[in-house]
């Protein structure tokens, strides 16, 4: 903590803040002349500064061309996930005072790059959702909109909500060694979704139906249990437990065939 100084020292005298150096991987895929390169910026640290605030500082006062994503600035939307010193994390939830003054930022791998730190996680997530059919499946002929919806046990609702906290930031996919090597791997986000709908009492799908979606090496059997997902998830979802649970269920569904 020695080099982290407070804005105001005892006695009212202001002290010098740390000078942060950001090394940012820059590349614009739209520009044929652009080549991936590192660019450095210096920012004076402020109290309670997050990476998101530092990036805003750079864009507003030093370089308006710098691209990065944000919406909520509070760890809810999952837009600002990036590689922070090589590991995925949310820029808005990372305080600069927890980092060394030299900070390296890069875009998430696996996802389509829009430019600099901005990636199109939405496109990937949509593809995953369509492929895994991540919505409640009911028997349409039995659906009666005038009827009251069946009650759900509060404990069950709570456990579904626990898994529904996923913000689809893509950190788990970017932290996954399997997803790096194999583009068609559904990743922890996908398996967490399946685990979530498997819990849901309104969803009429059986284990056999879920096996059709994740019962192969692009699904749960492709997971090599490297657990990067578990260790970087900004929402601290129980991914390891969910994947193990799904694996056991899919093994028994597969063996019964």
């Amino acid at each position: 903590m020695s080099d982290v100084q407070k804005n105001t020292a005892p006695g009212g005298q202001s002290r010098k803040n740390r000078l942060l150096t950001f090394h940012i991987l820059r590349y614009n895929p739209q520009d044929p002349d652009s080549k991936p390169h590192m660019q450095s910026y210096q920012v004076e640290e402020a109290e309670g500064m997050t990476l998101f605030l530092a990036l805003t500082e750079i864009r507003e006062h030093q370089d308006p061309t710098l691209q990065y994503d944000f919406v909520c600035r509070a760890g809810i939307c999952g837009s600002c996930s990036m590689l922070i010193n090589g590991r995925p994390g949310l820029a808005c939830r990372t305080l600069t005072h927890n980092l060394d003054p030299d900070i390296t930022l890069a875009p998430l791998p696996v996802f389509e790059l829009i430019g600099d730190l901005s990636v199109n996680t939405g496109k990937w997530m949509r593809g995953m959702s369509e492929r895994l059919e991540t919505w409640v499946h009911t028997k349409e002929q039995e659906l009666d909109l005038s009827k009251m919806e069946e009650r759900m046990d509060p404990d069950l609702a709570e456990s579904i909500y626990e898994l529904d906290r996923c913000v689809e930031c893509g950190s788990c996919v970017a932290a996954c060694g399997t997803a790096q090597m194999r583009n068609d791997f559904v990743g922890a986000v996908g398996m967490n979704k399946i685990a979530r709908f498997k819990l849901d009492s309104r969803d009429t799908r059986s284990d056999d139906d879920f096996y059709e979606l994740v019962g192969d090496d692009t699904g749960v059997f492709g997971c090599m249990s490297l657990l990067g997902c578990q260790d970087v998830c900004p929402k601290e979802l129980p991914l390891q437990t969910q994947i193990a649970f799904l694996r056991r269920k899919m093994i028994s569904a597969g063996l019964k065939r």
């Binding site: 932290a175 060694g177 790096q180 090597m181 249990s225 657990l227």
Partner: peptide
């Protein structure tokens, strides 16, 4: 694939990823 994984491993500095 090897190069991609190796770069990922170096970047992540994550024990379980390296042990693999």
């Amino acid at each position: 694939q090897y190069k991609t994984y190796h770069a990922h491993m170096k970047s992540m500095r994550h024990e379980d990823t390296t042990l693999w």
